[in-house]
């Protein structure tokens, strides 16, 4: 059966990565709170990592490079979450809300 051997080629991984990117962008547009947007951003990071890993496994001469790159992406994602959550907490302390609609003080 072809479906059971789908993990031996890059196609399924590429489609899943594209789906994750699409879901992340859908959530980024759709969500109205900052934390929901942050979660969607994490899904987009995961999509990029999965794409890197798939091409690294099937089309790269050195399979180490992609893994190191994905490790760096994970580090950046962790740093981004720490900064974003501290900003969210600071915003909540000043506005008592984290809805993107109400944070319009700089809107011209």
């Amino acid at each position: 059966m072809k479906l059971l051997h789908a993990y031996e080629q890059a196609d399924v991984f590429l489609v899943v990565a594209a789906f994750l990117l699409a879901v992340g962008i859908y959530g980024l547009i759709r969500r109205r709170t900052l934390i929901g947007m942050l979660i969607s951003g994490e899904i987009i990071f995961s999509a990029a990592s999965l794409n890197f890993m798939a091409l690294n496994r099937f089309h790269a001469p050195d399979p180490t490079v992609g893994q190191v790159f994905v490790l760096f992406i994970m580090g950046l994602a962790a740093a981004e979450v720490a900064i974003a959550l501290s900003i969210i907490i600071a915003v909540y302390r000043n506005y008592h809300s984290i809805k993107a609609r109400e944070l319009a003080d700089l809107n011209g």
């Binding site: 890059a10 196609d11 590429l14 489609v15 990565a17 594209a18 789906f19 990117l21 699409a22 879901v23 962008i25 859908y26 959530g27 547009i29 759709r30």
Partner: peptide
């Protein structure tokens, strides 16, 4: 906005899958 987001997501998913395959 839900419809716009759905359209954007579907377009991205379809286009990138096509490119990858």
């Amino acid at each position: 906005w839900g419809i716009v987001a759905l359209l954007a997501g579907a377009a991205i998913c379809w286009g990138l899958s096509r490119l990858g395959l």
